[in-house]
């Protein structure tokens, strides 16, 4: 992904923001603080607190969440912030290795 020149303005902005990586002010996240809603499967756990009720594999559901900004704290969103995130990977289950995860440090 780093070798692909972003084609649109927004993608360039994303790239700039990614490079910005200012100083030592960073990445203060270890564990999520819980997002499981009543009948939605959560991102980390299902309503029962396990993983068997989650989407399987997660790659099947990844773009559904990405497209509609379903877990904004855990998944990039296409509605506003990361329009081109999935461009390099048409099918997440097959090509998930092509996806860049968005870490504040990268």
């Amino acid at each position: 992904m780093n070798h692909v020149k972003p084609v649109n303005r927004k993608a360039r902005m994303v790239e700039r923001a990614a490079k910005h990586g200012a100083g030592d002010v960073k990445a203060l996240q270890s564990l999520p603080l819980g997002c499981s809603l009543i009948f939605d499967p959560g991102w980390e756990t299902d309503a029962a607190g396990g993983v068997s009720g989650l989407c399987q594999p997660v790659e099947a559901d990844l773009y559904g969440c990405y497209d509609d900004c379903w877990w904004p704290a855990q998944v990039p969103d296409q509605l506003t912030n990361y329009l081109s995130w999935s461009d390099s990977c048409a099918a997440a289950e097959r090509d998930w290795r092509k996806l860049d995860l968005i870490y504040p440090d990268r």
Partner: peptide, 14 residues
């Protein structure tokens, strides 16, 4: 121990 899927985006301040 629950072992779950990655967060595909991590926030600077969660």
């Amino acid at each position: 121990l629950l072992v779950s899927v990655p967060a595909y985006r991590e926030l600077i301040s969660q």
